[in-house]
Nucleic acid binder design. Structure first.
Lengths: 346, 346
DNA sequence: CGTTAGCACTCGGAAGTGATGAGTGCTAAG
DNA sequence: CTTAGCACTCATCACTTCCGAGTGCTAACG
């Protein structure tokens, strides 16, 4: 597929994409020859551009304007033309500087990561908190709210606190609940939630617990408590940044984007998808049926603990994004977050 | 002060404000006579309008446009002209319908309240969560994160969970921490945080605790844990709604508003202020030095438990807001939230 | 004396005009 | 295959004109 472009076409496409990223204005043939001395005349470039247009890498918004990359164009650029450098140490320390705050909760640290991403990239930062499923169990606590309603508090090994309300038929006193908490805390500490779920199923099947009433209740409760996904919350930071981008002079477009931010479900979906993969992921515009973020791109990377990926963070900006700058920033931030979460445990 | 306007002027001001709220277009003398049959000719109305302008209740954006209310105009309208009705039962049930969800955490319920406010008003909903100071103590838990760093988890009586990280010199084992938690939970349960703070100070002063080492540590820890304000988080829902308002065609203005939303500190300040007062509060535009929300108004009401006000919620919209509709909605929602939080407990 | 009709005046916005220039595609020469 | 040349297109901008909504003022009216 990528063979259909020869070296010259590639260089020209690259020039167009990069200039467009810089200027947000359609790029004409003369501009290409002026800024990149390829040893070609505008006329030649024009011919190539006509070909590129035919192949769908670029379009011209109207007859006498220059050309603008299509999504296919960006995709090709990102996949085969772009080379991302390393961050120089100055940039690294600029990122690190944002983290020199003590006494923060994990949630705050993650939110902070989103702010860093948005501040450094000047686009919008997104962070998905770890799904509880992906974390290591540290502590559980049951509190009785009212008849039949229990508040469950989980703490993960890294100190993330989550809570939910469950409805149950079991009528238990607070003292019994404490026993159950204690039992679970002793038995399950250090296991991953996945392991715990498996363990519960196993023990319940064996029924060996049945004649210990409390134990059986403990299992029942914890199964209920862990039944559905927890977490996977999305922090969006610096949404206002994106307003600076000229493409969002279009009110309608902007509204659509902000509605998407508000709903979050789409973002969760996208970030989840990226969590399956490894390394830096790039979603461009409405590729793969996400019409809502038409004209936008999303760059993500996963952060992880020693047990593997636990969450995802990234940057949303216009498709006309400065990929070569943003990609290493996202990458580095993800590494930094992983490291910081690890350090929390000391 | 309000004597400076006679009945006729008032009616005309009212007409202008209400028409402007409806149309977002400057209101001319003819429009006033057409829509409200006051038995006056446009010329007469013009004379009155000239007076109103001189007194600062209205301005005309340019020579040949109609008049637009100033902040002073809105203020007068809200304070003395406006009469807010009750919600009819249809609207009430429309609001209540949003709450027919079980198994939600308190945080989710509050967030839901913000969504309701935004959906019903079609402006932006804001909810400030209870400051921990204003709540009743239910449960505390200490978990050791690393040397010198403790995770503290608080639960309020209504089931709100908050956590923070504290740094301490005391090196305590997890077992000791559990003892401390147990002790505190038994001693303090049911007291308000205010009372607890007072109690800690008292006991520490009496020094009677000193010879019980654990107890003294418990006091020390809990003082540390409760030292600074917790909570007071602000949920902003339906920010995108406000984009539908014609006044935000102006990009600059919109950016400023969204930056304000992002920072939140200003909102916290405003909501805090409103929490001092009782009943429905109305902030109009940049009254009282809040330049950032120029052109916007904020309508708030407090929600409360049986022990008094604990939080604030409200609606932000353009100053050209439909006060008579929104005020009762905010009021009713606050009552509903109070009631729901109360019900959580039994 | 308050109210109103009449009128001249102002000014923003819409619509129309023409000049400008960036950019194109095509053709023919190098 | 590359390039110079050229006719053509079309968005943008500055400028004008026109229209109408709305005003303030004045004089007449009840």
């Amino acid at each position: 597929m990528s063979d259909e472009l020869n070296e010259r076409s590639r260089r020209i496409l690259e020039a167009i994409v990069e200039d467009y990223i810089g200027t947000a204005e359609p790029i004409g043939s003369r501009a290409v020859t002026r800024r990149h001395h390829l040893g070609l005349s505008p006329a030649t470039v024009r011919n190539v551009m006509a070909d590129l247009e035919e192949m769908g890498y670029i379009v011209s918004p109207h007859t006498s304007a220059g050309r603008v990359p299509t999504e296919k164009g960006y995709r090709f650029y990102v996949d085969t033309l772009l080379q991302v450098g390393q961050l120089d140490s100055q940039q690294k320390s600029r990122i690190e500087d944002y983290y020199r705050i003590d006494g923060l909760r994990v949630e705050e640290r993650l939110r902070e990561a989103g702010k860093v991403l948005s501040a450094i990239s000047s686009y919008t930062g997104v962070v998905m908190t770890p799904r509880f499923n992906c974390t290591v169990f540290r502590h559980i606590e049951f509190l009785k709210l009212s008849q039949g309603r229990l508040l469950v508090i989980f703490v993960s090994r890294s100190g993330m606190v989550q809570n939910k309300v469950i409805e149950t038929d079991l009528s238990l006193s607070q003292a019994e609940l404490e026993h159950i908490s204690n039992y679970l805390n002793q038995t399950l500490s250090g296991l991953s939630i996945q392991e715990i779920k498996a363990k519960i199923v196993r023990e319940m099947a064996e029924e060996k617990a049945i004649y210990d009433k409390l134990l059986s209740r403990a299992l029942e409760l914890s199964q209920e408590a862990m039944s559905d996904e927890l977490g996977g919350q999305v922090y969006i930071e610096g949404a206002a940044n994106i307003l600076e981008q000229p493409e969002f002079k279009d009110l309608e477009r902007m509204k659509r984007l902000f509605r998407t931010f508000e709903q979050k479900s789409l973002l969760v979906e996208l970030l989840d998808k990226s969590q399956q993969a490894r390394g830096v992921q790039i979603f461009i515009g409405s590729e793969s049926e996400y019409r809502e973020i038409e004209g936008c791109s999303l760059i993500t990377a996963n952060y992880s603990s020693s047990r593997g990926t636990i969450g995802t963070l990234g940057v949303i900006g216009p498709s006309r994004m400065n990929y070569s700058q943003v990609i290493p920033v996202v990458d580095y931030t993800a590494r930094l977050v992983s490291q910081i979460l690890e350090n929390e445990l000391e």
